[in-house]
């Protein structure tokens, strides 16, 4: 090999492509790709294609809890947006929020306020485009805006961040952030140690193919994305899963039905 010989860099591209072509001199013609797995719209193994929305939320909730995310569930009155709420822990391990106790008419705001209070959040990073009502009930919480952009140190000094999301996948317990309104740039949901995220029912899809299809059709595919499935974790010590390394050690999800 001629590693000692300097070679003009411009040659590398042409040479590699020539190598590829010579390697494929036998002109392989592989079998066509079969898309006979569950594609978008076909549901997921745990969720029939025609399952009611509630079922996908229930599955998402179970999956999130399974990976030790905290889950609060609120039910909106579809007519008014007011909370029609149930209190107490659900069978899926999620807490159902009692909006009345939180003192607000808006169930999301109530759930946010309760979560921030339980966590003891004082300084909260607020991404651009976050629905203003979400923080309506959060008395005593200072919202820190990312305009101008916060430094990494400032993000690190915050107690947490509240975001929305682009999508969520029920089957895998995954929340997808694409930098859209209310989500902010990627660092916002990364550096603070506590990530509170609101997921609306209409954002929940059954499986991975459904999520990909929606990202492609909405043109979000080329935007910077983060797929989050539970809090930061590692399997590097004896292959046991342990939560809490570099990303937010606490992921809390408010599921809105």
């Amino acid at each position: 090999m001629s590693q000692a010989t300097p070679r003009p860099a411009g040659d590398a591209r042409a040479e590699i492509l020539a190598r590829v072509r010579s390697a494929l001199a036998d002109r392989p013609s592989p079998a066509p790709v079969g898309r006979d797995y569950r594609t978008a719209g076909a549901g997921s193994p745990s969720l029939a294609a025609d399952a009611p929305r509630q079922a996908s939320l229930d599955l998402l909730s179970r999956r999130l809890v399974d990976y030790h995310a905290l889950v609060r569930r609120v039910r909106l009155d579809t007519a008014t947006g007011d909370g029609a709420v149930t209190s107490g822990a659900g069978a899926d391990g999620a807490d159902w929020v009692d909006a009345g106790k939180a003192g607000g008419g808006n169930a999301i705001a109530a759930a946010v306020a309760a979560a921030l209070a339980d966590r003891g959040v004082r300084r909260l990073v607020r991404p651009p485009g976050l629905p203003p009502g979400w923080l309506a009930g959060a008395a005593g919480v200072e919202a820190v805006d990312d305009e101008p952009a916060l430094t990494a140190g400032e993000l690190d000094a915050a107690d947490g961040v509240l975001t929305g999301c682009a999508l969520a996948i029920a089957e895998t317990g995954t929340i997808i952030l694409d930098g859209g309104p209310g989500q902010g740039r990627r660092a916002l949901s990364l550096v603070p140690d506590y990530h509170l995220v609101v997921v609306r029912a209409d954002q929940v899809v059954a499986g991975v193919p459904d999520a990909i299809a929606r990202l492609v059709t909405t043109g979000a595919a080329a935007r910077p994305q983060t797929w989050v499935s539970g809090p930061s974790a590692t399997s590097d010590i004896e292959l046991n899963r342990v939560e809490g390394v570099h990303g937010p050690r606490t992921l809390e999800v408010i599921l809105v039905s």
Binding site: Y37, T39, A40, R63, Y67, I169, E171, T172, G173, T174, R186, V208, P209, A211, I212, A213, L215, V216, A221, P224, Q225, T226, W227, V228, S229, G230, P231, S232, A233, S235, L239, R241, G247
Partner: peptide, 27 residues
């Protein structure tokens, strides 16, 4: 992009035995 729907199911389940790995970044 559509091909990712295959690999993002195959990889995490095969690698760490998770339904999905905690973080996937795409840029």
């Amino acid at each position: 992009w559509r091909d990712l729907e295959v690999f993002l199911q195959l990889l995490p389940r095969s690698a760490t035995g998770e339904r999905m790995n905690p973080y996937t970044s795409m840029w």
